[in-house]
Amino acid sequence: MTQPPIPLAITPNPMTARAKSWLRMRAIARRHAYVLVRSPHRLFDVSLWPLVDVLLFGSLAAFVGTSGSTPAAKASGYLLAGIVLWHVIYQSQIAMSTGLLEETWTRNLLNLMVTPLREVEYLGGVALFGMIKLVIGVGVMVIGAFAFFSFHTWSLGFGLIPIAVVLLVVGWAISLFVMGLVLRFGTGAEALAWGVMFVLLPLSGVFYPTNALPTVMQPIALALPTTHAFTALRSLVDQRGTDWAQLSIAAIGSLIMLGLSMWFLVAMLRAFRKRGYITRYT
């Protein structure tokens, strides 16, 4: 056990540890890009579904906006801006969660786990791939909102960027939690990959202020960082500028959420190795 490390028999391409990590992350991102490009139905995630959402909520916004009242005009903007920003969470979460699920569906987990790939590198790879999906999916929505409803997302200003970053972090946090559940409970937990989003959507006040929620739900909503991020978004839509107070609460909440999710994932990964759950996928 005290023997010094033996060098590889042949070192084909000596690289620094950092360069190897970056190479591995890109390899994982490319692996998932192949899956996306070669499975046409998966392209729906970044093309058709965003377009359907923008059509649905854009049409609702157009309908509501015809009443001419000030609240209706506001709601119209909330609907379109809300659905575009909602897809930041959706795309980042789904890309990462289905990244791991893809490995379990195709029994590829063992192939990966025996390589030098570190868990953080794997997560970095699927997050990188998720960012590409995010840019495409949200890009489709922004263009769709402009083309069909003359809604200029970019007119909301640079304040959109920190809101999008907070929502991206929340998307990652949810996906880490889902990954932990999948490692612990198997693919039966995959329904949560989508189900969690449906719970979060109404509670986060994506399209309306939280005082529109039933009173009993409002404390739960206020505990979510997404609620504060969307409140900050509505401030932009109402042309009140960036609401830094709400944005700060959202940022702190999203980081706490990310930390808890990472802790949960590490604990589930430890249980996965300890209990030999890999045999579920061989």
């Binding site: 360069a19 591995r24 390899a27 994982i28 490319r30 692996r31 390589t115």
Partner: peptide, 13 residues
């Protein structure tokens, strides 16, 4: 094969 070579840190496999 290229994917796995890169996971083992081989840039030009």
């Amino acid at each position: 094969l290229r994917l796995y070579a890169q996971l083992y840190g081989i840039a030009e496999p």
